[in-house]
Design a protein around this nucleic acid. Structure first.
Lengths: 218, 218
DNA sequence: TAATATTATTAGGTTACCCTAATTACTAAA
DNA sequence: TTTAGTAATTAGGGTAACCTAATAATATTA
């Protein structure tokens, strides 16, 4: 139906729209896709012709509804396969991204719906990212970055905004795990590091950089 | 590493070599790949350059050892994914081919080895085709076509040589299933149809065409 | 072995996606 | 509001796979 390249452009456009809002700069796409700007211009024209994006020269681009549907479908695939890799094949959450990048392009509705069922209709992937449903509805995440909270507040660690293996690996060693109930004990003034108390009374301190990558639902 | 197209050429070459022996005709490849002969010549030259096939103009082509390794790896992937689709996602054996054609190109050793383990190291796919091991060793099948056997002989129905959904569907309805113990009661002279007795004393008659598509291990 | 039929290759062209270098369009500062 | 700086586009090419039409090589049969 669509080429892998097209699908990757759509996914990138979707994610950039999520973060920075509507018209997405050609250079932003070029950066995340690892190609040069003229290639993006080229591709956007072809995709506009297929009604997957709307594009006005030098004004940026955005997904059409059709394009959004495709993008969300791919994200659904990606996240369900990640759950499969972690839950069934016992990969670490820091190992699954590249594999899911390939598996997400497998084009079969029935397959992904059966996979969804097989996995027990999970709501989120191993990093806490919400899994769109079969109709393209994306659950709204209600979580905020730890770095936006104040001492005394508590919540549940439900996701990460940094998916790098290095960071995920660090978390594995830190003792923090998805689903942990946390309370903010204090914030160190001079370096903005956060000291947290976990459910089991365990105390963990994380840097501001880390606090900026942890999603907490309150 | 290799493009999907290359991988499909390698797989086709492997299968044609299995059936007809060594140098494979350009036209044979064109036929099974659904492309025209000049495209094959073109591609073979590129692949010869990469040492995946050996090719002499107008003399046909064959896999190099390197090419064979890649081909067998893809066949391993394909068959393991088919097992997954049937055993875990509960697809019918007549439904899984197209999906596996996509999944077979997922390029990750660790993934397929874990899948293998997850599935309990199956020896054969849902159609009875042997699954190559992680070192590229393909188990030798010892089965023969039903149509080569004589009345009185018995064996086990272990595979099919026709993978079309239509045929597989017919088998589902006929009452014959992979693993069934059978005995040949008689062969009708004028149409060469076979009458079989199954383990449970059930009697089944199949046409010569069908007898030519059933693999029996004696 | 010459003539014919078949099969394969070359020649020349297309499309998708990518590139670099040159140019144009926007944006922000003076 | 002109100017400088940044971002985006056009121009011109490349490669992988494909195609059709024309030619060459092999195989078959008279």
């Amino acid at each position: 139906m669509h080429s892998f390249t097209e699908e990757n452009y759509l996914k990138a456009l979707y994610k950039l729209q999520e973060i920075n809002g509507d018209p997405v700069a050609t250079s932003a796409l070029a950066l995340v896709l690892g190609v040069h700007a003229p290639s993006v211009t080229d591709m956007l024209k072809r995709m506009a012709h297929k009604k997957l994006v709307s594009y006005q020269k030098s004004k940026g681009s955005r997904l059409t509804e059709k394009g959004r549907q495709v993008a969300v479908g791919i994200i659904r695939n990606h996240r369900l396969w990640e759950v499969f890799l972690v839950e069934k094949l016992e990969f670490g959450w820091d190992q699954v991204h590249e594999m899911a990048e390939q598996l997400e392009h497998i084009n079969d509705e029935e397959l992904v719906n059966r996979l969804d069922k097989y996995l027990g209709f999970p709501k989120a992937d191993p990093h806490g990212d919400p899994i769109p449903d079969a109709n393209g509805v994306v659950p709204k995440s209600r979580s905020v970055l730890l770095a936006t909270l104040e001492p005394g507040q508590d919540g549940i660690f439900t996701g990460v905004s940094d998916h790098s293996p290095a960071f995920l690996n660090y978390l594995d060693k830190s003792g923090l795990a998805l689903g942990d109930k946390i309370r903010i004990k204090s914030i160190e003034e001079f370096d903005l590091s956060y000291t947290l108390q976990l459910k089991g009374k365990k105390i963990v301190t994380v840097s501001h950089k880390v606090a900026n990558s942890l999603l907490i639902s309150t």
